[in-house]
Design a protein around this nucleic acid. Sequence first.
DNA 1: TATTGTTATACTCTATAACTATA
DNA 2: TATAGTTATAGAGTATAACAATA
Lengths: 172, 172
Amino acid sequence: MAGQAQYEQYEELARQLSALGAVKRDLGRILPPDCSAGSAGVLALLDRHGDLRMSALSELLAVDMSVTSRYAAHLAERGWLERSPDPADKRSRILRLTPEGEAILLELSRRSTDLLAERLSDWTEDEVGQLIRLMARLRAGFGDCRSAPHRPPPAPPVPVREPSTRTPAQAT
Amino acid sequence: MAGQAQYEQYEELARQLSALGAVKRDLGRILPPDCSAGSAGVLALLDRHGDLRMSALSELLAVDMSVTSRYAAHLAERGWLERSPDPADKRSRILRLTPEGEAILLELSRRSTDLLAERLSDWTEDEVGQLIRLMARLRAGFGDCRSAPHRPPPAPPVPVREPSTRTPAQAT
DNA sequence: TATTGTTATACTCTATAACTATA
DNA sequence: TATAGTTATAGAGTATAACAATA
């Protein structure tokens, strides 16, 4: 039973979530023009998890595979990763960081880390860790966008947002 | 002196920050078509802080005033807020929620709260509070986008992203 | 001259739909 | 028929620049 305090807490959480966008944008500003935050995320995940398939990468990034696909193409064009066919399933492709990709990632990480070290200079390691854990848990609580909702909403009085992007069939 | 552990922590923080976008989008999906997450944020802040000027609202939202201006116009069109001239400074406008605005906000809040209550059912109130506090502190550590950087970066080897949106003068 | 707010424009991130190839 | 991935497109969110009105 959510009381008034709980209610206000949720409101505040929602707002902080929105406002966090400013932090993300700040972080993005220090990146080079041909490696945006999205691309950098792909490189970082490949470095951490080793070779990955598109689908696995999408899940880690928490975005649709179409988004991942575009980032991967962008990075492959620049020689920062390779997409080799998966011998076990010819529909799949395995993504792997190239040495050049590792090099650029190193530079990107240095910059992000420098910025974070500056802005978080008064945080203890424990506090940073706590924030990370709580954010990860929050994220886990929300299913990814494609999966069925946890429970069908019970006929809301105000019309729920319709699927707002209807891509019309391409007239060929 | 940032050690290896610290370095990895910062990397992880950056990634969690990106992945949190999925939570925001999830939250946005339950909103009605003519009141997006951004507009809802304006309503919520006006409700919480009372009447506000554009500039104050922008700061609370952590976005540029031009963005706030568009949301305000959108909401005013729908009769959810009023923009009255500030008697003390005729350049300014005071934003105030209308009764209709309060009504729609109530509905929006109910939906967000329901969703959060469902997804955070296994969180204690204290844990939610902790996350909020840490996020607020993180955000505070990052100045808003318009202010001068805390320290000029020392000639980075890879070119820093140039101002990428050059709006050409409108040829009239 | 500096500041408050508005508008036009451009760019990033993202999802949806349609499609191809393979399972 | 179902799944992995690609591409085209639409839309939300945002910043920059130029402008108008006022301080």
